[in-house]
Simulated assay, not measured.
Amino acid sequence: MATFLGIDFQTWWFLLIGAVFTGYIILDGFDLGAGSLHLFFNKEESRRIALNAIGPVWDGNEVWIVIGGGALFAGFPEVYATLLSAFYIPFMLFLVAIIFRAISIEFRSKEPMKWWRKMWDVSYSISSALIAFLLGVILGNVTQGINMGADHVFRGSFTEFLNPYALLTGVTTLALLMMHGAIYLVMKTENRLYAKLTVMVRNTTIFFVIMILLTSFYTLLYLPHMAATIRAYPELFFVPVLMVLAIANITRQITKRKYMAAFVSSAVTISLLMVLVAMELYPNMLLSKQSAEYHLTVYNAASSQKTLGIMLIVAAIGVPLVAGYTTFVFMTFKGKVKLDEMSY
C-alpha cells in the first residue's frame, strides 16, 4: 500500500476531503448566516449593506464545495455514488436553494420596485437558511448511518432522513452559521446597523450555545459510536476541550467587542466540530444501519492507488492556489462596506 509521510493515500484523501468541506462551511457559512438574518434588517440601506458585505466573496466561497465534490468523486467514487443517490431529494433541494440564492443576490438590484426587491429578499433569506439546515440534516444522517445493504444501495425512504437527530443537527448548523454570519457582518458595518448587529451577535450566540448543548447530549445518549474513539484513546479528549474553549472565547470576545477574534474562534469551532466528526467516523465514511460489514470505509471505497497518487499531486497544487486566491480577495475587500453606484 502506497504511503506518504508514513500515512496511506486513502487516509490522506480522507483528510483532504474533510479539510475542503471544512473550508467550505467556514467560508460559505458566514454568507449563509448573513442571508438567514437578512429579513431581520428592516431598512433598504441596511439590506444593501448586508448584501454588499458578502458581495465580493460569496460566489468564490462556493468554489470550495465544487472542489469537495470533485475530490470525493475522485478519491472515493463509491461513497460519492451511494451518498448522492441516497440523499437525492436533500441534494436536489440544496442545489435549487443555491440557484435561488445566487439569482436573488444578482436580480435584486436590477429593478427599483419595492415588491421586486422584497420578493428577492425573501428568496435570498429562505434559500440561505434552507442550505444551512440541509447541510446539518445530511451531516446528522451520515453520523447515524443509513439503511444500506451489502450492495451499498440505499433501501430506505426520504422520510427516514427527517428523524429527530438529523432535524436537531440541522437547526444546530443553522444556529452556528447565523452566529458566524452575524459576527462577520458586524465587522463590515458601522453606525446604526453596527449597533443592531451587536444585539444579533449576542442573540445568535445564545441560540447556538443552547443548540450545541442539546445536540451534544443527544449524541452522547443515543449515538454511543460517536464517542468510541475518544473512549478508546483518552488522550484525544483535548479536541472537545479545545472546542468548548473556542465557544467560550466567542462569548468572551463578543463581550469585549473584539469581533475579529470572535470570528476566528467561530471558525475554529467549526473546524473542531468537523474534526470530532471525522475522528469518530474514521476509517468509515458512510455507515450502514443494517450491519457493520456493509460500512463504506476509506479502504473498501477508494479509487486505485495510482489514481489516488496522481490526484493527490493535483490537489497539492490546486488547493493552495484556490486558498491563495480566496485570501487575496478577502484582503482586497477588507474594511467597512461603503455603498456606491456599483453596489448591489
Rank of each mutant, 00 (worst) to 15 (best):
V153D: 07
L83N: 03
G75Y: 03
M243W: 14
S123M: 15
I49D: 05
Q305N: 15
M119I: 08
I206H: 06
S288M: 08
K258I: 04
F4T: 13
I313Q: 07
T198I: 12
M200A: 13
K338F: 08
V153S: 09
F237V: 15
P320G: 02
M178D: 05
P240H: 06
G145T: 09
A261E: 13
F161Q: 01
T198V: 12
I99D: 06
F217H: 11
M279H: 09
E44P: 01
E62V: 10
W120L: 06
M279Q: 14
K118I: 10
S127N: 09
R117T: 04
A71Q: 07
D59C: 03
S127M: 10
F94Y: 11
A97W: 00
M211S: 12
K114M: 12
K336H: 04
E190H: 12
N284Q: 11
I247Q: 01
V66G: 02
V241C: 06
L95C: 06
T307G: 07
L15D: 04
G335A: 02
L130S: 13
I126P: 03
K289Y: 04
N284V: 14
E280C: 01
T251V: 12
P283G: 00
G318L: 14
E45M: 07
H152N: 12
M1F: 07
L93H: 07
T204Y: 02
V275C: 05
P224H: 02
F21W: 12
V209G: 00
G70F: 07
V57F: 10
F14H: 05
M211K: 04
L174W: 04
G60S: 11
S123C: 13
V171I: 15
I49Y: 08
V137M: 08
T251Y: 00
V199A: 13
Y218A: 10
V298E: 05
Y218D: 09
V319I: 15
I105A: 08
V171M: 14
A86N: 01
F237L: 15
E106M: 09
V322N: 00
A102C: 07
R252K: 12
G75M: 03
S128W: 00
I54N: 04
F237A: 15
L39N: 11
Q144A: 03
N61G: 05
D8I: 10
G33C: 03
M179Y: 01
K188Y: 03
E293G: 08
M226G: 02
G140A: 04
